[in-house]
């Protein structure tokens, strides 16, 4: 049994090295916005295969022009950064209330979990009404927009949220 696991592990490693060799970069493992599989809102597979970085995730949480999550959600652990919003629920304890797969699904596209949610979809590129070119007020230049957050930023935010325990 133990041996079997080890063998599977070796096989996976071999496959990863093979694809890395084929595509040259770790980017090859990234799941593009339109390829994300939502299972009742949950996304079990990492979008990048690279573990999320908690510190980087915290930065995304508080930075305008990135996630700016605290614009709508209060987070006690981030209270040194001023002005937390009241539009969404507090994220205190989010790491206990939700699994990693649920959090990844909510951050990537919350509407797959909460229909009608006001929360922007952070890993989505089309299907918008009058999409603009960022905050210029002008029309978007391409049919598909860059997602609001990169795959790795999503992973970083998920890693940060998992640290929020009450």
């Amino acid at each position: 049994m133990r041996n079997g696991n080890l063998r599977t592990g070796v096989a996976t490693l071999a496959a990863v090295s093979l694809s890395a060799a084929l595509f040259g970069t770790a980017m090859a493992a990234e799941i593009a916005p339109k390829q994300v599989v939502y299972d009742e809102g949950k996304v079990s597979e990492s979008l990048t295969g690279v573990p999320g970085n908690v510190e980087a995730g915290e930065k995304v949480m508080i930075t305008r022009g990135q996630g700016n999550c605290i614009a709508c959600h209060a987070v006690t652990a981030l209270e040194k950064t001023p002005f937390h919003g009241e539009v969404g629920p507090t994220l205190d304890g989010a790491g206990e209330r939700w699994t990693e797969a649920e959090l990844r699904g909510i951050v990537a596209n919350s509407k797959m979990t909460f229909e009608e949610s006001m929360m922007p979809s952070f890993y989505k590129v089309d299907g918008y009404i009058r999409p603009g070119n960022a905050f210029t007020g002008k029309a978007a230049k391409t049919a598909e927009l860059p997602p609001l957050l990169t795959a790795q930023q999503i992973e970083d935010v998920v890693a940060y949220l998992l640290t929020l325990k009450e």
Binding site: R64, N68, I70, A71, C72, P82, F83, H84, G85, E86, V87, M118, P120, S121, Y128, I129, R130, P131, G132, L145, L148
Partner: peptide, 23 residues
Amino acid sequence: RYGQLELSCANCHEQNYDNYIRA
């Protein structure tokens, strides 16, 4: 619900008036 943030007037000004959004 316009734009990449998919927000309507109602999202902020009917459903969330009197709440803070950041500052």
